[in-house]
Structures are given as C-alpha cells and as structure tokens.
Design a protein around this nucleic acid. Sequence first.
DNA 1: TGACAGACTTAGGTTCGTCTAATATAATTA
DNA 2: TAATTATATTAGACGAACCTAAGTCTGTCA
Lengths: 252, 252
Amino acid sequence: MTSTYAVSESMEDYLKTIFKVINKQHVARPKDIAKILKVSAPSVTGALRSLAEKEFIHYSPYDLITLTQKGENAAKDVIRRHDVLQNFFEKVLLVEQKEADEVACRMEHVVSPNIMDRFISFIEFLEICPRAGEKWISGFGYYCDHDGKLDNCEKCIELTLENLREKKRKGGNEAMVVKKLNELEPGNKGRVVKVAVSGETGRRLVEMGVTAGTMVEIEKVAPFGDPIDIKVKGYHLSLRKEEAAGITIEPV
Amino acid sequence: MTSTYAVSESMEDYLKTIFKVINKQHVARPKDIAKILKVSAPSVTGALRSLAEKEFIHYSPYDLITLTQKGENAAKDVIRRHDVLQNFFEKVLLVEQKEADEVACRMEHVVSPNIMDRFISFIEFLEICPRAGEKWISGFGYYCDHDGKLDNCEKCIELTLENLREKKRKGGNEAMVVKKLNELEPGNKGRVVKVAVSGETGRRLVEMGVTAGTMVEIEKVAPFGDPIDIKVKGYHLSLRKEEAAGITIEPV
DNA sequence: TGACAGACTTAGGTTCGTCTAATATAATTA
DNA sequence: TAATTATATTAGACGAACCTAAGTCTGTCA
Ligand SMILES: [Mn+2]
Ligand SMILES: [Mn+2]
Ligand SMILES: [Mn+2]
Ligand SMILES: [Mn+2]
C-alpha cells in the first residue's frame, strides 16, 4: 500500500508549519519551526534539506525559507484536510477544541481525498437539510450528555416542518433570490448559481470544482470589500472584489 | 506528544492480524502474517520478537504464536477502533467498502478514545433519532450524487412525524415493552434497561460501561441460543445464554 | 570594528521498520 | 529414512526521523 500523499507525514507537518509561520510573520526561521513542532533545531535543518531536495521549498544553509508553488499547494492541502477534520470533530461530534485539533493533526495525513469530500458534503448536508441542522446536532449533544436519552424530538420536528412550509409559502411568491458573491457578508452561506470569472482565479475555481451547486461561505471581507475570503469545499480562498462579482449565489 | 496507544502503529497491525488469523485457523504462522500485511518474512520475525519482549504474545523461534491476555485485549481494541471507523465511513459517509477499510486501517492508530466514543454515539443517535435515521442518510446519498441538490425533504419529514405520532399512540396504550436479551433475534437492537450479570462477564460489562441506556445489537445467536454474539459500544461480545438472560432490554 | 550571544548547521549516533541474501529448521514425500 | 521442499530465522544493510554535542555563521552593540 503506497502512501496516499506525495510526502511523509512528518514532512507534511513541516510544510504546514512553514506555511503558517510565513503567513503570520512574513519570514520563517528554523527556530520557530522547531518550537512549533517540538523538535530539535538539527531535525529542522534535516527536514529543510529534504524538502528543498524535493522542491517543496527554496532553501540553502543560513538562507531564508520560502515555499515553492508546489510546496504552497501541498501545505494548503494539508491545512484543508486538517480544518475539515477538526471542524467535523468540533461541530458535529462536539469534541473539545484541543483534542479535535490534535487528532485532526494525526488523521490529516491518512484521510483519503474521497473521504475528505464526503466529510465536506456531509457537513454541508447537515447544514442544509431541514431535517438536521443545528437543532439536530444539539440533540446529539443532549444524547451524549444524558446517557442515551433522546430530547423531545417531536416538537423539534414539528417546528422544522413549520419553518419549511413557511419558507415555501414565501418562496412561492418571490422568484429565486440570487446575489453576487461580493454582496454577501461574513458568515453568510450560499449555493453557487453561476461562475463567470476569468484569468488565473477562474481556472483555479474550475480546478477546485466550484460549479453550480457548490456551497460557499463568506469568511472575511476586508474594508472596501476587497479582498473577500471565502470557504469552498474546505478550501480557504481569497478573491478580488471584481472576481467575486462574477460569481452568482443563491443565499441559504 | 506521546503516542495515544501502548504500541506503535505497525505493532498494532501485527497484533490485529495475529488475532484474526488465530480466530480463523486456530494457529498463526509467520507466513500468513507476512502475506496479510504484505511484508517480508524477516520483518515478521522481528515484529514477533518485539511483541514477545513487550509481553503481547508468547513466542520463541519456530514455536507457535499465541496472544497473551494483554495482547488479546490490545488486538480487540484495535479491531474495535477499525470497525467503528469503517462502519462510519460505509454507513454514514456512504464510502465504498474497500476504501473505508483502508482508511480505517490507517486511522485506527490515531483516533482518540474520546472521539471513538463520539463516533459510536453519533451512529447510535443517527439510528434512533426520528429526525435522522436511514431515510436521512439516503437523502445524503442523493445530495452527494446530484451535485448538492436536496431530495424532497418535506415529504420525508411529514412521514417521520406521522410515524412518530403513530408510535406514540400505540405507546400510550401499552406499557414500555421490555425483553430479556436472550429473547431477541439477530439484527434486533435495543436499549439496556437493567444489567444483572454476575462473575467475570458482569465485571467486564461494567468496565465497558454497559449500563442502563446503552444501545445493544444482536449479531448472531448460536443454535439453542448459546452463545449470543452482541455489539455494544463498538465492542463485539459473546455471552452465554444465562448471562444474556440477566440483561433487560427495551427493543428499538 | 570587533567581540559575543544567539541561531543554525554539521557530525555522529539511536531506534524503528523495512528489505535481501544466506542459513537453519520442519514437514512432506519418494 | 533420506532427500526435497517449504518455512522460519539470522545476518547485515538502509532510510526516515529523531537526538546530543560540537562547531560555524551573523546581526547587534559596545
Ligand atoms: Mn487546528
Ligand atoms: Mn499533522
Ligand atoms: Mn475492515
Ligand atoms: Mn492499521
């Protein structure tokens, strides 16, 4: 059984750490990496040499460390896997943050791309399907904390059904509401209706499979609405305002 | 970060394999182990020496291999972790069996006891809470296969609510139905109402946290109803008929 | 500008899990 | 029972990922 990803678990953690350090303080130094990963300085030197050889980073002794494009992609991918898993543990299994983070950091290296996608879809479905959603998860919390007792499910279902009908009544009057991605606010979620973005970003979106039907969440909007940070399929993505304007969304 | 479990990932896989081989053909030989784990024969010899030293197995060169109690416990624990994960991937995330098995075999070594418990509770909750269950999971399947389209949720919720009320009407007339565990049939599930089992098995049940509220599933019943194989909290357990008779169940 | 402290690398060693080649033992079969 | 075949072990080596101890580089500051 060949390993699922291009580098070893250890190297993935180094890449992840380098990416995070660079994005936080512009430049990554071996000392920081050693501290974060709780390894000795010589271990870091060794890892750097190995990563440079495989062309994940630019590096020579005493030089500063930068990620190659390949390295950045790999790092982002590990981080995505980590985030999806941690999110699932925290938001669905209601596990405490520290443990969710720790276990995600071990699982991130072994989860398959396919199962990743399923986790993402599952969480989306959970958020969208009116049978489930937040209320249902809190019911799971009750179940866990009370030795397998179910909390009053009937009321909850009635309410759900009520809301669903309400929404439908309204929906019958107005046409499907769509907005441009740049018109949404942090925390808003929606489903992609159309993508009309050219250039590198457009290509990246297609590559990532961001097409009609994909769920998008607004994470952060900078002053003057540029750039806009979004989450799609577990990826964190930063869009220019004009790029975001090319994406049509049906808010959820 | 110290590793979560007592032995390395590799050794856990050896233990698991030894357990399975013994339970299948009574005696484990290095050749079988090598074949299953896809390693060379000398690798097996090395692993056996190492496991013997740590007292997980009884072994000396050319001798036959048996698990110590410690080894058997460890093996069962790995298998439980594996099964719970694989089950979640297959039954909840609707992942195909081969991949579910492979990824479970990697994750089994890094999932924490706590998150294990959550997975188990989550699956139970999914099976019990009338908002979710099988119908809901099949809705998730539809969602995955149709690019994020929701299948007619309203009808499904109405039906669920209907069933729930139906059940309640019936439930109002008759008192809570309870049975003895030995009266159930393979595939039946239920919630433990009372445990009155003495001896080693009783102690084991308590250790495993099998108390009022725990979900139990009947897996297999031998001819004449003895022994009875059950699944509790992810563990597979074999009970004598008289032991099973000491456990009161409310069928679900 | 030159010393020095702190950061980084080199040198060299350990453990783990794997391998191949050679050897020893056990089982089968003529 | 002797020869042959199948299995298992020993010997020795390797790469990955870590470590400690000992040097080397560099930015800072007197
Ligand atoms: Mn994290
Ligand atoms: Mn990690
Ligand atoms: Mn399996
Ligand atoms: Mn495994």
